[in-house]
Amino acid sequence: MSSMKPSSVAAVIGDLVRSRAAPDRAALQGRLVAALDEVSASVPGLLDPLAVTAGDEFQGTFATVGSALEACLAVRLALLPHADARFGVGWGPVTLLDAQRGIQDGPGWWAARGAIDDVHRTAATAATRTARTAYRRAEDVTGPDEAAVAAALLCRDHLLGSLDERSIEVVRGIMAGRTQAELAQDLGISPSAVSQRVRTDGLGVLVEASRLLREVA
């Protein structure tokens, strides 16, 4: 017998970007699985762990849109610069069809599928080619405003997609709670070099925007 969860959840559908062009698909798949396990163990609000469902596509559910968006960023930071992923986040009720196999359906998943389709279309346009995350709310469901979240995600994705490898390492460390002095020592560069990257590459803006998105309920 199917059952409907009493409230909406944030359903996440993700996949890898340009995975078919990877020289070692098995190694890429292993890196993805490790990233999903790491994020599932660390991001608050997890309901169903992020897991590969078929090929390079993966899914999971979260209690809030904010926790889902935090997980999307965390997966990207775990994969970059060697690989990247895109995400559709849907907010709505989810139906459990088969508890033993964990098969789910419902408006939350339909919204997530529509959102990841949006990402594919948006990233195909030169002006928004850095888009990697989209959000949709299921019909007739109360939840975070689509336009406001979309605007924030476009900016966050652009900032992250514009970074070089060293700045990705810096922002990854900041998000993990490392100080700039600690990062300078870890990376073998001067504290002033870390500070300059934080300022000129907009890393502080990226971290603050992510903090605010995390609070979206």
Rank of each mutant, 00 (worst) to 15 (best):
R136D: 06
A83N: 07
V43G: 02
A22F: 00
L77Q: 11
T64K: 02
T53D: 07
P49G: 10
R31C: 03
A131E: 06
D37Q: 14
V39T: 07
Q59V: 08
V39I: 03
L79T: 05
A126S: 14
A41F: 06
A22M: 07
V141Q: 12
W110T: 15
V17Q: 02
A74H: 06
P144K: 14
V119N: 05
R101W: 12
A115T: 14
A26M: 10
T133A: 05
A35V: 04
S67E: 14
D145E: 15
G30E: 11
A68H: 08
A22D: 08
A112E: 07
C72F: 00
L77E: 09
R129D: 15
E38N: 09
Q104R: 14
I116C: 06
A11Q: 04
D118S: 12
T53I: 09
D117I: 07
P49N: 11
V17E: 05
S19W: 00
V52D: 03
L16S: 02
A68I: 15
E57D: 11
L28E: 13
T142G: 10
S19R: 04
R20Q: 12
V89A: 05
D117G: 15
G114K: 06
D48P: 01
Q59L: 09
A138M: 11
A127C: 07
L36F: 09
P81F: 09
G55A: 08
A124V: 02
D84A: 11
F58M: 07
P144F: 12
G92P: 05
T95R: 10
E38C: 04
D15K: 01
A71V: 10
E38I: 03
D140M: 09
V65G: 00
A22I: 00
A21Q: 11
A138L: 12
A111M: 13
L36N: 05
D56P: 01
F62P: 01
A41N: 11
R86T: 04
P93H: 09
G114V: 07
A27P: 03
R20K: 10
W110A: 15
T64H: 03
A22H: 00
I116E: 00
P93V: 02
G14S: 06
T64S: 08
R136L: 15
T128P: 04
A134V: 08
A85Q: 03
G102I: 09
L69T: 14
E146M: 10
A99D: 14
R18W: 01
Y135R: 08
G92N: 08
A27M: 11
D140P: 01
G66A: 11
A34F: 09
L28I: 10
